[in-house]
Amino acid sequence: MLTRKVKNRLLSIFVFIFFLIFLVYFILSSLNKNILYFKTPSEVFSSVDILEKNKSQSLRVGGMVKKGSINVDDNEIKFVITDFKNEILVSYKGTVPNLFSEEKGVIAEGKFSDKKFFLADRILAKHDENYIPPELKEIKKND
């Protein structure tokens, strides 16, 4: 038998949870842009702010390393980040993570020096969700 007290507590919990979900939803949707850890090249080009007003602002750009675009010469590595719509040319001095390679995810942290040229201070490799044993990878390549 539900007593009056139990009913009241049950009701208060439900009301509390209901309002809490609403609150969190509004907080998250207003923060939506800031939660992004990196921007894709298309997102960068669609926002005028980054390219025109806040050129000195540090940001992260992420996407795929374009095939055949990695170019290494005296301590400097140049490559192209692509999201298959837009491209950004990145230049970086320093060591790259082991997983950094062509057609793999990458995140570059740094500043734009001009519209299509990005100077990175840090390179992070992004791992995708695929887990494959090495033998199977060879079979796939041969196909």
């Binding site: 850890y37 921007k39 992004k126 791992h127 995708d128 969700e129």
Partner: peptide, 18 residues
Amino acid sequence: WNTLHQPASIKFTGTSTI
């Protein structure tokens, strides 16, 4: 959101990528 962390490899629906 865009995250550094990869998406789930084991999915409730659809094929797993592991």
